[in-house]
Amino acid sequence: MSKSFFVDTTLCTACRACQVACKQWHDLPAEETKNRGTYENPADLSFDTYKLVRMREEVIGGKLKWLFFPEQCRHCVEAPCLDTAGDASAIYKDAATGAIIFTANTKGMNVDEIIESCPYNIPRKGPDGTLAKCDMCLDRVQNGLLPACVKTCPTGAMNFGERADIVALAKSRLFAVKKANPKAALLDTDDVNVIYLVAEKPSLYHKFAVASNAAFDITRQVALRRMFTPLTNIVSRLL
């Protein structure tokens, strides 16, 4: 049984503590940003930013909504990035938690393909070509602590635990939220370990709120590489 996150966007206040807590725990540097006519910042995920709260203003049914979407790696159940890399020393799945972990060995790999393979457009390349993204705060989780973003969340928007418990929580929240928001939905529940609850159409929150089909298309190169890397794949499954 893996661990999962439940992100209840209906409780998120976009305080962005999760963004800072992530940087704090991981000792990640700040980026130089500009105000682009929105509170949302930095403009995108990066090698130094694993978590980013997307903020969108939408008029829905004549009412203004400010939609918040704390974006992060979904730690996919079957992770395309892992398959694409095909090298468990670079990208592996932690057996105990289901965390998809990028290591320093991603440097020099087919990083653009790995990025392209992600249905949620998450991994980002560093200046030296290493890839980085959310690591589920594996060190914390292995030591019985919550991931930094979950621990710091004031309202219960961020949740973490055993997958079965998290799925149950997500379903019960969906049931409650649906009463007032018929469009409410859980996103890609079966495929990911980071389950989002949204009250409106997912694409209004963020382009990559749900898995993008385009990103799932496996390029020829990727398919080829897979053929030549059976061993490492097996290793990764063993993990």
Binding site: D27, A88, D94, T97, F102, T103, L138, D139, Q142
Partner: peptide
Amino acid sequence: TAAGLAVSGLGFDLAPVKSHAQML
């Protein structure tokens, strides 16, 4: 730290990028 260290026998450095895996 068992879960994290168990794989080290494979000879890979499995530390997540920018993280301090295994030991807090």
